[in-house]
């Protein structure tokens, strides 16, 4: 049983002229097996939350805490966070030319589990996971994200989620740019990972359509750098009908 706890998190970024506060006191708790949807309009700070938890150097945490099972996540380096059991499926995964997917996956698996995976079972696991995500075999010998389409990049992110078996997974707009079939395939991957590893999922999205495939236990509406409203799945349904106008209007 793992718990990711975010308390009164304030995060800033340096812009050209000054420092801008983006997260203004976020409180959130994600436990193993739970699915939390974070929804909100563009620019509300959803992705900043994701990257701050993962430790991207662009974001400066000015106050607040993030802990995983009581351990101070903010004191850890990016790779230590991943080895502690956090995973971020990125919205725009970067290309790493010349590093094959096979080599990358094995290196990452070795790093997070502390030992090299057994070759025979590992190869089988990778093949099976790729088949479930409808990824061709030749994928494995391509460079990481090199020349991948948008949909291929997202499948590759979920492939990693399934193989690296994190305690808590943050999915940053994994649904963006996917057609209906790809969205279903990717969502099934997330559900498989959660079913197998009891992963806690923090699902960041702008739209409600992914919630048809991944059922949230909790929905948090993110506006202007903090949670404006929280509820169960019914809140997502209401957002689908009303959009975010209600929250944006309140700010004026």
């Amino acid at each position: 049983m793992a718990t990711l706890e975010i308390r009164d998190l304030h995060v800033s970024v340096d812009t050209e002229n000054d420092t801008k506060e983006i997260l203004k006191g976020v409180n959130l708790t994600v436990r193993s097996g739970e699915t939390h949807a974070i929804m909100g309009p563009n620019g509300s700070g959803k992705s900043t939350l994701a990257y701050s938890i993962a430790g991207h150097p662009k974001y400066a945490v000015t106050s607040g805490t993030v802990t995983l099972d009581g351990e101070d996540v903010l004191a850890m380096s990016v790779d230590e966070r991943a080895r502690a059991g956090l995973f971020l499926a990125m919205q725009y995964p970067v290309e790493v030319p010349g590093v094959t997917v096979t080599n990358f996956l094995r290196t990452a698996k070795t790093a997070v589990s502390g030992e090299a995976p057994k070759l025979r079972t590992w190869t089988k696991d990778v093949k099976a996971a790729m088949a479930e995500l409808r990824m061709d075999n030749d994928f494995a010998e391509r460079g990481v994200n090199e020349g991948f389409s948008g949909g291929e990049k997202k499948r590759h992110e979920i492939l990693q989620l399934e193989l690296l078996e994190p305690k808590i997974a943050i999915l940053d707009e994994t649904d963006s740019g996917l057609d209906v079939d790809a969205l279903r395939i990717v969502s099934e991957g997330v559900n498989r990972a959660q079913g197998k590893d009891n992963t806690g999922v923090l699902l960041i999205t702008h739209y409600t359509r992914i919630l048809r495939y991944i059922k949230p236990d909790f929905v948090h509406v993110f506006v202007d750098g903090k949670v404006a409203e929280e509820g169960g799945p019914e809140l997502a349904e209401r957002l689908e009908e009303e959009g975010y106008d209600r929250f944006l209007a309140a700010r004026v």
């Binding site: 990016v78 790779d79 970067v94 790493v96 997070v112 460079g143």
Partner: peptide, 28 residues
């Protein structure tokens, strides 16, 4: 590219090994 480094580190790969991977990939 520090974004490559971040991506690899976000998968648990320590910084020095991530650098090694990127440079080896560059020469591949």
């Amino acid at each position: 590219d520090d974004e490559q480094l971040f991506y690899l580190q976000a998968r648990g790969i320590p910084e020095h090994e991530a650098r090694r991977l990127v440079v080896r990939g560059f020469f591949a």
